[in-house]
Amino acid sequence: MFARKGIRGNEQPAGWLFVAPALIILGLFMLLPILMALWVSLTRWNGQGSPFTGDVPFAGLGNYTRLFTDEGLARQDFMTSIRNNAYYVFLVVPIQTVLALGLALIVNNRLLKGKGFFRTAFYFPSVTSSVAISVVFLFMFANGGAINAILSVFGIQGPQWFSDPRGLLHLLFERLGVSPFLTDSGLFGLSWWDWLSGPSVAMCAIISLVVWTTSGTFMVMFLAALQNVPVQLEEAGRIDGANRWQLLRHVILPQLRPTTFLVITLGLIGTWQVFDQIYVMSQGNPAKTTLTPAFLSYRTAFRDFDYGSGAAISFVLFLIIVLLTLLQRRLTRERDS
């Protein structure tokens, strides 16, 4: 497209001048670093000197194959982190979606007053600092903390949340008297028994924190969508004799479908990025049951000084998230067209 001259004048220089500051910063601190990290992920750089000299040992795809095909600690840790994050996603996404929808439906009820207050109350946690709020939850989930105090009211002795590595499914099997099975065979260096651990008790504490902080944001999205549901539709349903449940199931939920899709995909994208809470609350402990790919990549690079492997983990995670983002954009486009 050529710039047209005339009454608008020549906007070519002005255009580039206006985008220049943002372009330079984004190029220098987003695009360039990604290319640099792509190179580093092919090396065994240990943090000494510059990674862009001939002295740095070249690893080829070694850092990537170690995550998938080579037997060893690197693959075991990576697969453990994938397992942990998968359980985290399986719990956080459905719970926060249902909770957000439920809260939105109740807050939106025309018969109830104080809508503004409740909306504020539910939304506030999501604007606070993830680090600050992790400190609060660390205190609440402490051994003699608030959560265990509440549980003891109901006669339940709470676990030592952040030092309990037992998986929920393993606990369930134990309760049912099932002894460990499939411990000999497995996939990617983890036995099937290990894959089937379920989220650990410690991970459940982090899950509850994340659900608590994000539900409010998604509730606001659902509220906005609910306000766009035509009142006539609801009235028509009511005249046809639909009860409240049928109205929700057959009139309101279909109208909310696009928003629900959006909330679920945004949830899927966000949950693969969990980092701050892990860093503050557990650092991947106990027994690596709260290790996630994001934290593992950080730890591998900045604690073990294996920047190549850390960058490789980042790119695998990048791929997972990009695929989910493409899925989300496709769904949004289908909705719009």
């Binding site: 670093p33 990025q273 690079a301 960058a311 980042s314 983002t325 493409l326």
Partner: peptide, 20 residues
């Protein structure tokens, strides 16, 4: 495209460029 880049995968890349 940049909006789709998850911030958490930029940790090592950002360190690299700042270091450089």
């Amino acid at each position: 495209a940049l909006m789709a880049v998850p911030p958490v995968v930029l940790l090592i890349p950002k360190f690299l460029v700042l270091n450089q």
